[in-house]
C-alpha cells in the first residue's frame, strides 16, 4: 500500500460508523456473532463493523474479547 492509499484510507469516514460507545455497548453480542458467523455479524451490525475498521482502540478491545471467547470454547 502506498502513502496515498494509506492517507486516503485514514481520512475517509463512513456515515454508518456508530462510534465507540455504541460499539462497546454491544461488543459482547457482536463478538459471539463474529465467532459463529462473521459475515452475518457484519451484515447485522454494519455500523459496528465499520467502526472497528476505523478505530484502533475499539478494534484492540474487540480482538481481546474475541480471543477470550475463543479460549473458552
Amino acid at each position: 500500500m502506498n502513502g496515498w492509499d494509506e492517507l486516503d484510507r485514514f481520512l475517509r469516514t463512513d456515515p454508518r460508523d456508530v462510534g465507540c460507545d455504541k460499539a462497546m455497548e454491544l461488543l459482547h453480542v457482536y463478538v459471539e456473532l463474529v465467532a459463529r458467523h462473521p459475515d452475518a455479524a457484519r451484515e447485522r451490525y454494519p455500523g459496528i463493523a465499520v467502526h472497528l475498521r476505523a478505530c484502533g482502540p475499539c478494534n484492540e478491545d474487540f480482538e481481546g474479547l474475541l480471543a477470550a471467547v475463543a479460549d473458552s470454547i
Binding site: 459482547h28 453480542v29 463478538v31 482502540p57 481481546g64 477470550a68 473458552s72
Partner: peptide, 22 residues
C-alpha cells in the same frame, strides 16, 4: 441475556485492561 453471561463478563475484564493501559 443477549450473550452468554461469561462473554458479557469477559468484556468487563478486557475493557478494564484497556482503560488501565490508557
Amino acid at each position: 441475556g443477549e450473550s452468554r453471561f461469561t462473554t458479557w463478563v469477559y468484556k468487563f475484564a478486557v475493557l478494564e485492561v484497556s482503560a488501565k493501559l490508557g
